[in-house]
Every structure is written in structure tokens, then in C-alpha cells.
Simulated assay, not measured.
Amino acid sequence: MASGYGLNGGPSRCFVFWQELLGCYVVNAGEGDSGKKKCISAFEDYYECLHHSKEAARTRKLQAAYRKAEAMHPRENAPKAEQIRSLGLIGKEEATARILGS
């Protein structure tokens, strides 16, 4: 949240990362640009907490790998598109009559 407070009134989920980043900046303030370079890892942690970009990229890669594995090894006895659309009910009048005894 922009206010710094979470949904339930407590600190936001990224507040700990923000404190870590701020502490790093305070400790390394007098060193100019080299101070900022020392805080890159803290900044990346804070940014990831806010936006989840690395986690999203990892999830996309896992999903792509899963789809590729599924395509390489199709299921045996997988239902055909026609069977899925009709749920196996259309064209089964003889089986229905046999079961019902009509």
C-alpha cells in the first residue's frame, strides 16, 4: 500500500524490505554512487516484493515446461474432442435401452 499500512492496519508486506533498503542507504550515504551500488541487492529484494516479476517469470517457465512435457507424452486413452463435447451421451441410445431394459 502507498500509505505503508497493510490491509489489516499493520505494516505492509514489503515494509521489512523497505526498512532494509533504507538502512542500507543510510549506512552507505557518504560514499556517493558506490553506496548505491552496495544496496542493489536490497533494492532488488524490495522491488521483487512489490511487483513479483521474478516469481512471475519463473511461473511462466514452469508452465511452459509442463505444457511441453504434456505434448511430448500424450495420455493413453485420452478422450477425443467429440467425446468431450457430447459427454458420451449422444449416439448411445442402444446402450441406454439395454440398461433400462426397454
Score class of each variant (00 low, 15 high):
A95F: 12
E20K: 14
E55M: 09
G23I: 06
R85T: 09
E20W: 08
K61N: 10
S102Q: 09
A65T: 04
A97D: 03
G9A: 02
R98K: 14
A64Y: 05
S41G: 04
R13Q: 13
A42Y: 04
E94W: 04
G6F: 10
A69G: 05
L62A: 04
Y5L: 09
D45C: 10
L22M: 11
Y66W: 08
E93S: 13
H73E: 07
E93W: 08
I84N: 06
A56K: 00
H52L: 15
R85E: 07
A95D: 13
C24S: 00
A97W: 02
E20V: 13
E55D: 08
F43M: 02
K36F: 15
R60C: 11
E55P: 02
W18S: 12
F15E: 00
E48I: 02
I90F: 13
G10M: 08
K36I: 06
F17E: 03
A65W: 07
L22T: 09
R98M: 10
D45A: 15
L21D: 01
Y46P: 01
H52D: 11
R98C: 02
A78S: 14
Y47Q: 02
E31H: 09
H52R: 13
S53P: 02
Q83H: 14
L89I: 01
G4P: 00
K80Y: 11
P74E: 01
Q63K: 12
S3M: 02
Y66S: 11
G101M: 00
S12L: 03
G6M: 10
A57K: 08
K61P: 03
V16Y: 11
I90N: 08
P79F: 10
K80W: 08
P79M: 06
A56Y: 00
L7K: 08
S53T: 12
T96I: 12
S3Q: 11
M72K: 14
Y47L: 09
W18E: 14
A78G: 12
A56R: 00
A2M: 05
H51M: 10
G6I: 04
P11W: 05
Y5H: 06
G30R: 11
F43P: 01
F15K: 03
F17I: 03
I40G: 06
E44T: 11
Y47R: 15
G10E: 13
V27F: 07
G30T: 04
A2P: 00
G35P: 06
A71D: 04
F43W: 12
Q63F: 07
N8F: 15
M72N: 11
A69W: 13
K61S: 14
Q83T: 12
E70S: 07
